[in-house]
Design a protein around this nucleic acid. Structure first.
Length: 133
DNA sequence: TGCGGAACGG
DNA sequence: CCGTTCCGCA
């Protein structure tokens, strides 16, 4: 349920930061910059600057850096999307506690405009009208 | 290094 | 509403 906005405009959802992080994590080519490590949902940013740079590209924000990116991450704390794994550097944890699993659209994006190739995701069978418990 | 307030823009 | 930018603080 956390993976989207149920009451928001369907279709007009921009790339959210955690979407981006998840996508980096599910790609082995980014193991050098970000990877799962430790507990379930925990990931460590090996190259904060690189992650920030890639994120900046996706958002057309060339002046992006880990400082700002982490700021956005900190906002996620209150939203219960992310938590900080203290003690470890550049290590955060996804809050999968109430998540079934990703419904977010995977696909090939092309550069900075956010041009997605619509993949025929067969797992679009999730009940969306769930109230916030 | 990591946190959070404030202001601003889409 | 979400993220970006900027800054002081611990």
């Amino acid at each position: 349920d956390w993976a989207y906005k149920p009451e928001s405009s369907p279709g007009s959802r921009q790339i959210q930061l955690w979407h981006f992080i998840l996508e980096l994590l599910q790609k082995e080519e980014y193991q050098g910059v970000i990877a799962w490590q430790g507990d379930y949902g925990e990931f460590v940013i090996k190259d904060p600057d690189e992650v920030a740079r890639l994120w900046g590209i996706r958002k057309c924000k060339p002046h992006m850096n880990y400082d700002k990116l982490s700021r956005a991450l900190r906002y996620y704390y209150n939203k219960r999307i992310l938590h900080k794994t203290k003690g470890k550097r550049f290590t955060y944890k996804f809050n999968f506690s109430k998540v079934v699993l990703v419904n977010y659209p995977l696909g090939e994006r092309d550069g900075c405009g956010g041009k997605w190739h619509p993949l025929p995701t067969p797992m679009q069978a999730g009940p969306r009208g769930s109230g916030p418990a």
